[in-house]
Design a binder for these strands. Structure first.
Lengths: 364, 364
DNA sequence: AATTAAGTTGCATACCTATGCAAAATAGAA
DNA sequence: TTCTATTTTGCATAGGTATGCAACTTAATT
């Protein structure tokens, strides 16, 4: 271990060793810059010898681009989010971006965004979290594109809507399709277990579900709230199955993650069989949904397409000089039929069992 | 929307508005710096009016500290890692650090670390991934502390060991305890389903398991590899239960995540009952392990303590000027007994059913 | 009131790289 | 060979902040 070893090698050190100017070193590491092949080689060799890597902070100070995307998640217990995170991360890495991760289980999104802005990120993805209108304005002022993933802007920010984009699956159609499926398969007492009451996902899914039931002259027979949490979903189930009362013959649970809790509770606490005694439908189609223990019928949110839409939305805003208006992209999903639903009548429309063609709808 | 609005407000702008020098602004935002209360107030007000936030890149350029920790994960399907990620993220955030996340499903760790080093991170956490000795040296040269989370250094880097720390649970003792438990509970044909054959976790767990069996004059009756993947664990199970042959009466699966696959396969493909026909034990104690569908007996890796150890190890290295040697911290775990194991003989030692006191052992 | 100590402040500079501009070198054309 | 067009190179500066140093102000002490 040599004493006088510099632990910070700069482009100047490389320039000295390669006997060129600092500019030449910089140009070697700047794609598309003008360097002769010979000097480029000299520089690369010197850089390798010195183990040199350009300093991203200095670079971003000049270029104004950090190649960092801020990503805010609220919780990871629901496997939908780890899956989304993994794909988003890989997709952004492919474009040369890096992910600064924030998990706001406790703290609120505003504080986090404030911290994020210090790093002058090129963009922000908010998954399952809303953003106050103040922050939305801050981001707009700083010309930082924001994409809401799997949630839309609440009322509070409606006037700043033009600066914030969003990507989500078609929750409304999903709720509707599930309602249609449950009615047509012959269920009479259909219950709903809600997620977070204020979240746009829950609101849309429930509205679609109600409308779908209404189309058949049906309605929600019972309702309880699980708040998107495993433990609360269990309580919601117990509430719907109070002893001495008639109980639902089908439940639409607003997320797969809660649906697993519901199924466990039905089977191992209440001694009911699925689907013979109760049918269960979830939403998300997380990997576990197809596991043998659950075989959960659910509405698939096409993760890859949602991620792709998010990335290209960011890309679009990043390359555009002028502030393009915030877009709202809705990705069509599809019902995945597994064994957790009993087909009581056989007159069910075959169409609902067929995976419909996925066509993203784009609204501005 | 005003036309001439600056979208990058600097400390100089704030200084001008507050009628102080740029230094005063800087000092206001530098904890412990010398500023009179009056000027501090003036600065804060001006900063608020202009919506100013210090530029983290410029700051880190001078201080040499980025307050960013690079975090490398390899996959998130196994719920152990989302849980670890969430806690690590929250813990580091509490210390004022931010997480730059990399997921190296496909790419190798070395390339990622190279990218990470561009950001002059203050530290690196590698979860379930090893690091080549080259990179370990790079990090040591740059004086960047590296902590391996849930894995130890491979042979390749043994000579650079002093610069790399590691935190893991006591896999050896865990394997041993599980062997002891299965033998004492009366199992005769005990199989092992391995994780990734080269990973230190798998090697240690298997070695402990073998030693534990040997203590009772027993040995591994059957063995297959699941490579820590869900689908491969199913194949491994089918391999161990080839029709026409005698099959195991107990399986130790190297991770909970694989154990779920094994249980599903046993129940829904092979029609076996757990634990009546086969006992299953996992490792990790992920949240799902206590779900009603599985009730999996498993060895608990104390996540909170592992995270705490990781954070304080980093902190220690970050505050120390001199390079402290890399430490290896081993956290004691404990067996969690649930319903997936059949107690055949009643003469089982009561001790193994009791949660032992957790005492971290520290080796250097 | 005079002296000393402590607390504040501003100036100037350094951190490391990218880039406009002009000079220099090279290639191409006549 | 001479002149023009093109490529390559180096110089100098900017980007936003932290900090040593010296000058200044205020408080404390005698």
């Amino acid at each position: 271990m040599i004493e006088g070893m510099k632990n910070n090698i700069t482009s100047i050190d490389v320039a000295r060793l390669a006997q060129v100017s600092q500019s030449a070193v910089s140009r070697t590491f700047t794609p598309g810059a003008s360097v002769a092949e010979a000097t480029r080689a000299k520089v690369l060799e010197a850089a390798l010898r010195l183990n040199y890597r350009p300093n991203a902070h200095a670079r971003s100070l000049i270029t104004g681009k950090s190649r960092i995307i801020g990503l805010v998640l609220s919780y990871l217990e629901n496997l939908f989010y780890p899956a989304a995170l993994q794909r988003l991360s890989e997709r952004l890495q492919k474009d040369g971006y890096h992910v600064l991760l924030f998990i706001n289980q406790t703290s609120n999104a505003d504080d986090l965004v404030t911290e994020i802005l210090q790093y002058h990120v090129d963009g922000i993805i908010l998954a399952a979290t809303t953003l106050s209108s103040d922050l939305a304005r801050s981001c707009a002022d700083a010309n930082i594109p924001v994409v809401l993933f799997n949630r839309v802007m609440g009322n509070s920010g409606s006037n700043n809507l033009q600066s914030v984009s969003s990507v989500r699956s078609d929750n409304l159609a999903g709720g509707k399709e599930i309602a249609n499926f449950l009615v047509k398969s012959g269920h009479k007492r259909i219950a709903y277990i809600a997620g977070n009451e204020e979240s746009s996902t829950n609101l849309e899914r429930e509205r679609g579900f109600r409308e779908g039931l209404a189309d058949h002259g049906a309605h929600i027979w019972g309702r309880a709230t699980g708040n998107y949490e495993f433990a609360q979903a269990r309580l919601a189930t117990l509430e719907l199955f109070k002893p001495g009362h008639e109980h639902p013959d089908a439940i639409f649970v607003a997320s797969d993650h809660m649906a697993f809790s519901v199924m466990d509770t039905l089977r191992y606490e209440l001694g009911l069989r699925i689907p013979e005694d109760v049918s269960v439908v979830g939403f998300d189609n997380v990997p576990q949904a197809e596991w043998g223990a659950y075989e959960l019928t659910t509405f698939n949110q096409p993760l890859d397409e949602m991620v792709e839409a998010t990335a290209s939305l960011l890309q679009e805003r990043l390359s555009d000089q002028e502030k393009s208006a915030g877009k709202s992209i809705v990705i069509a999903g599809n019902l995945i039929v597994r064994k957790s639903v009993k087909i009581i009548l056989e007159k069910i429309d075959q169409k609902v069992l067929v995976k419909p063609k996925l066509k993203p709808k784009v609204k501005t």
